[in-house]
Amino acid sequence: MLLMAVLTAALLILPAFADTYILSVAILILYFAYLGQAWNVMMGFCGQLSLGHSLYVGVGAYVSAALFVHFGIQPWLGVWAAVLACMAAGAAIGVLAFRFGIGGVYFALLTIAFAEFTRIGFDHLRWVGGSGGFFLHVAQREFNDVLALRGSPAMFYYVMLVATVAAFVFCAWLLHTRIGYYWQAIREDPEAAQALGINTFRYKMLAIVISSGMSAFGGVFFAFYYNNLFPEQIFSMSRSIEIILGPIIGGIGTLFGPILGAAVLTVLAEGITELMAAFGWEIPGVKQVFYGACLLAVIVFVPRGIWPALARCLGLESRGKGPRDG
């Protein structure tokens, strides 16, 4: 309880003390924690492995950015369009996959395929800059404008903090509704779930639509925080992998896992980058090798992720148990 209070206070006052670099790392952590939470809805709760979540982030980013640049529509409005577009994309993939009984590895391949051809599509979409990139005007502002997503890094930090907390609360609530029970039943044993009278198609659709809708906000945030979008970057497979590493390392299917995983990974990855800079080394791909090593370590030592192990040490019952080992 005390720990939680201290942590909350620290999170709230962080921007007052942190320099720009620390703040940017904190924003990155929250960003990946949020997206990890969204991905976790599909995989952790419902057992549907998506390896193409960059699709929803990218579509969300491009929709809101295009509305802003071409029509001057502010992001607080654009975000709804982005969410709807991503839900539609998720629903389309879901109908295709779940109607025809595509599951497991084949479903994962399908999600990669969709992300890839969306990337290629955007590469050739001149209206939003094609492969040359799409840029948002950055205007110097004296005041933070949350609705326009224009302001200081501290404002972006608080926006992402609120989003991450909201996603956490939303997921915690979902897990305790009928939907959450049904998702877990489908994850554990799809056949048994069906035999129990669960409309597995409907609940799998619900998972993909909710997850993609949540991811859309991550994309909107990305667009207005970085102000530049390249299909090559935002839709790439490695983006999807970055999203899912957090929850896998933190603990699939748990509520704290995505947050903890994002924090651990981002801090360590930044640390390595710093270390390399300090020694003046420049080895391309070292981050990816590091991610691989982290994944290996987790699989070997704590197969259910860091959070369940940590929760046991702290004597906490982890709410929303993940799938069992193996």
Partner: peptide, 8 residues
């Protein structure tokens, strides 16, 4: 084969 949900 029973098909219970093992981690619930």
């Amino acid at each position: 084969g029973r098909q219970i949900f093992p981690s619930l």
